[in-house]
Design a protein around this nucleic acid. Structure first.
Lengths: 358, 358
DNA sequence: CTGTTAGCGCTTTCAT
DNA sequence: ATGAAAGCGCTAACAG
């Protein structure tokens, strides 16, 4: 148990007052070179760490954070992200932080653009960006940087930008691992169907493309010859999907493995369930309630989890620590890629809430 | 952002002073029935939540927590548990908690007994118990209960006791899942070797036995006929193991899968590495550095993770919340059973530290 | 039983 | 550039 070193103790050792120590700690200026050095030495020597509890309650300033992420319905991926952000807010309650959300339609470039355009005018102290359109995010990010406003990416990164941090589950590795698991589950040579919904209007920032690349990399490295067929899928006209999927299965009766590179695994799982198809194994992404349901009924074999709740929590926490304590975070934060099965799903989901709770 | 309701606000509404409200909140007695009711109503009505930051710094009482867990060397399982406990201590620093450790030799019943015997005499306010010997833990637990001292189990539970909470990765499910993964990896019919080190002196509390039961359950449910051979292993005379293991592999050249039901997977992995055996797949438990190393070199195919660090953190945090804020925790806490491969291990280990950090 | 009051350690304002 | 002092909201000791 480290006995508590107070600012007062440091001040005494440095031969100054508490106020001066505080000024040094927070880089507030107005400290003579001599004193600054003395304080820094004392800080070092006594291994001082600010008591965050006290710090939290004494802070006066109010911060505004804007959060630009896609719209979502109940049970969708971004809902968990927001839950994590909210948890961070609660955990640091008393910190006078105001959040403003700007949601956009992730399938509509113009919606995204117009959401992003408002951000600067809100004059935030920091921002959280969930980027789905590369060029728009690139533009916004660099505007923020120019304005000196720190921001973090959530579930995304955009090259050529300077975020304070980003949180993402590496999509390449995700695809690679999915290839490994599905081929392990169905054995060599068995036919695989792959579903990859491509976003309209911008393909470049689409993580499913990178996942596909990871998937193919595994194929190549392991010289696999499992035949691959593609399942067409439309986000815009979902009523067509039943027929599109049916065609694939009828024309390719040898399919034994199915890979869904988005969080829509449940769409295929529902098809399998309705048609009582039991000889295929499906691997999907994200622990949406509908996916979990299919996992539990045995229509999905593996789910890949990306911890969206933690991404949200960490994004917000990172901003807090930076804004308030000037803590510089690690920029690149790769989330664990969880492998979830019928057996471990229950503990996994229960822990989303408790695990990180303060 | 909920605007902050202060004790003072509640007091005003209830028509009493802050002191009285505090007495009600903490059940300190000395409040008239009338006032208690008024305060409770006001609390409810204003949806008051104590500001934990402030609360933490104003607390005066000192708590003593004793922690009775096995001795460990660097890189072993319990090291992570202690890391988690330490992290909780740091997170709630300023709470005046004194920890006393009582380590025992987990392979020596008498060592455990003598460690447990000291605990009561230390007059702790709470205890954390890592139980490996059932009868001893049973006895201690009930003594603590009789003395009114709350305690939590870590990485264990003992039937017939009343812990405040326990944290454990369900060993039955763990074994079951291992059976699923290994047979998936090597296919049906292939021969499997299994290593299960049994603790000397007490078999009943040994989690490896339950894991084995889970393993066999999967076998039974799926009518598997993969032949099983057993790898003998001695914790007490480790120098014999090389020969024992060698014998098994020479006499059973058809072995394709290996299951290690303890955290000693690296022992077999090292053997495989030294003898350049490449046609077998090994599944083990726990992310010890040596296991992770073997995972990365490809000598272990799957590791099962039990989040020991989080177990430690949560155990300590649970006690804090109970002792200080009288929060009643959920008793049964099943940790996620993580599936770790070469592909996701890096993110997984990096996150042990950052993920839950405050 | 109840109200008042003195801290807890840090931040921030106000004199100097 | 610096020190002194007033809070932040809660807890606990004390006086009544």
């Amino acid at each position: 148990m480290a006995q508590k070193i107070r600012i007062k103790d440091v001040a005494e050792l440095a031969g100054v007052s508490a106020g001066t120590v505080d000024r040094v700690i927070h880089n507030r200026g107005n400290v003579s070179k001599r004193n600054r050095k003395a304080v820094e030495d004392a800080l070092q020597q006594m291994n001082y760490h600010t008591n965050l509890h006290v710090s939290a309650i004494s802070l006066k300033k109010t911060y505004k954070v804007v959060i630009a992420i896609p719209q979502y319905s109940e049970g969708e991926y971004w809902e968990s992200v927001v839950a994590g952000i909210t948890r961070a807010l609660n955990r640091y309650s008393g910190l006078n932080v105001i959040c403003e959300y700007r949601h956009y339609n992730q399938f509509d470039l113009f919606s995204c653009r117009s959401a992003y355009e408002q951000i600067l005018s809100l004059r935030p102290d920091a921002a959280i960006i969930g980027a789905t359109f590369r060029d728009e995010a690139f533009y916004l990010a660099n505007q923020l940087t120019d304005a000196g406003i720190p921001f973090v990416f959530i579930d995304s990164v955009v090259e050529g930008t300077s975020p304070l941090a980003y949180f993402i589950a590496d999509p390449f590795t995700c695809g690679y691992l999915m290839a490994k698991l599905i081929t392990m589950a169905i054995g060599p040579d068995a036919e695989i169907a792959i579903m990859q919904a491509v976003r309209v209007g911008d393909e470049s920032a689409n993580t499913t493309i990178v996942r596909k690349a990871g998937f193919m990399k595994y194929y190549e490295e392991h010289k696999l010859h499992n035949p691959l067929v593609r399942i067409p899928f439309s986000v815009v006209n979902p009523e067509q999907n039943e027929e599109l999927i049916g065609d694939v299965f009828q024309q390719n009766p040898a399919i034994r493995g199915i890979v869904v590179l988005s969080s829509r695994g449940y769409v295929i799982a529902d098809y399998l369930r309705r048609h009582d198809i039991r000889h295929t194994k499906l691997i999907g992404i994200d622990t949406l309630p509908r996916n979990i349901d299919a996992l539990q009924t045995g229509h999905i074999e593996f789910l890949i989890g990306q911890r969206p709740e933690q991404q949200g929590f960490l994004a917000m926490q990172t901003l807090f620590k930076y804004l308030i304590y000037k803590e510089i975070p690690r920029t690149r934060n790769l989330m664990p890629i969880d492998i979830i099965t019928k057996e471990n799903v229950e503990m996994y989901t229960e822990f989303q809430h408790t695990a990180v709770e303060g």
